[in-house]
Design a protein around this nucleic acid. Structure first.
Lengths: 66, 66
DNA sequence: TTATAATGTAAAATATACTTTACATTTAGA
DNA sequence: TCTAAATGTAAAGTATATTTTACATTATAA
């Protein structure tokens, strides 16, 4: 799975720490998601999508490995 | 988080086993998700949404506990 | 009513998400 | 250039998702 969280952060001018704090996870969790270290839970991705006011599918995408 | 997978299965006339097989997880995983035993990964919920041709937010909802 | 399919559940094992702490590297601004 | 902020990364620990096996319960159809 891929995502464009980094772009969304840029649009909203937020740091990884900002985003982490807003959705209640650690900064390393955001970093790991952006670097595709692991797949977030649906609760987490829903919270991120809600924060950025975008449909989840515009932020997270299945790829050939999924 | 809540979901209406059971309703979607009914609409598409699929059993838990059918759905499990189509998205490549065990039947117990589907059952556990429907019974809110645990929160699926984003890959899994994206696959379910794609299978039912619905935006993910129409299948999975954040609630007060999230 | 009986057989069969579907669903619910549970325990043990494994994989993976997420936290915490800590430090190194990169980026950006004074 | 110097400094501070932001990002990347790593290891150890904890929590939770998912599988497998197995069995019990419920619904359905003959």
């Amino acid at each position: 799975m891929k995502n464009n969280i980094k772009v969304q952060r840029a649009i909203h001018d937020m740091t990884q720490a900002d985003l982490a704090e807003k959705i209640g996870v650690s900064r390393q969790t955001i970093n790991a998601i952006e670097k595709n270290k692991y797949v977030p839970s649906t609760v987490l991705s829903l919270k991120i999508a809600r924060l950025f006011s975008k449909p989840l599918e515009e932020l997270f995408f299945l790829d050939e490995t999924d």
